[in-house]
């Protein structure tokens, strides 16, 4: 008899949780019309990088700040555009001394090249909610045209306003951008960038 009572108590507890739990009330509904102009929300967006250290392990870091705009048109991708700026000074590795070195002329040279940026020039639909975005990527004073695959992660329309989210991952050769310190083996030349953007409607 005792196990049956315990099972009933457990079931009723789960039932109460299901009625009052967070899932039932805070999941924002997907926006009916996602098109519009959005401003990048720096708090919920991320720019991460990873690079090989001593050809031994992956070293991760990120940029703590970013800003920019996204013009999104779900019906006509050619009308989409994106501008993103990342203050080089906001680089963060978790170690103050390393950050200081990363900001120096050996790496990002932030006093001479204070901003990393991306400005799209062409957007094409790729199917499955992904887009092929071509644009000018600027780092360390060097501008290069790159094409990346961007995933449209989702959208929402809640009391926090209308929001859209995108995610991309691509690799650059840092020596193409004149950042060649340690390229003789201490640090890899290929740097993988992960950019996740949440943008709120203006």
């Amino acid at each position: 008899m005792r196990p049956v009572i315990l099972a009933l108590v457990a079931l009723s507890s789960f039932g109460l949780l299901a009625l009052t739990g967070p899932n039932s009330s805070t999941t924002a509904p997907r926006a009916a019309d996602e098109s519009g102009s959005y401003a990048i929300d720096p708090v919920h967006s991320t720019v991460m990088f990873k690079v090989k250290h001593l050809d031994t392990s992956w070293f991760y870091g990120n940029f703590a700040e970013m800003s920019g705009t996204v013009d999104f048109d779900s019906a006509d991708p050619s009308k989409c555009s994106m501008v993103m700026e990342v203050p080089a000074e906001s680089i963060n590795s978790g170690n103050d001394k390393l950050d200081q070195h990363l900001r120096s002329p050996d790496f990002f040279d932030v006093k001479q090249f204070p901003v990393l940026g991306f400005r799209s020039t062409k957007v094409e639909a790729n199917g499955d909610g992904t887009y092929k975005v071509t644009g000018d990527f600027v780092m360390h004073g060097v501008t290069k045209s790159i094409t990346v695959e961007v995933e449209h992660v989702g959208s929402s329309d809640s009391r926090m306003g209308k929001k859209v989210g995108f995610h991309t991952q691509f690799t650059i050769d840092r020596t193409d951008y004149g950042v060649s310190y340690g390229a003789d083996g201490a640090l890899g030349t290929d740097v993988e960038l992960t950019i996740s953007i949440e943008a709120g409607q203006n």
Binding site: P105, D109, Q112, F113, H140, G141, V142, T143, K144, T175, G178, S180
Partner: peptide, 18 residues
């Protein structure tokens, strides 16, 4: 030490050390 000498161009702003 640092590879080919950097050339200034419309898509490249040289650093002071370059």
């Amino acid at each position: 030490l640092f590879g080919a000498p950097p050339m200034p161009s419309s898509t490249r702003t040289l650093a002071a050390t370059d």
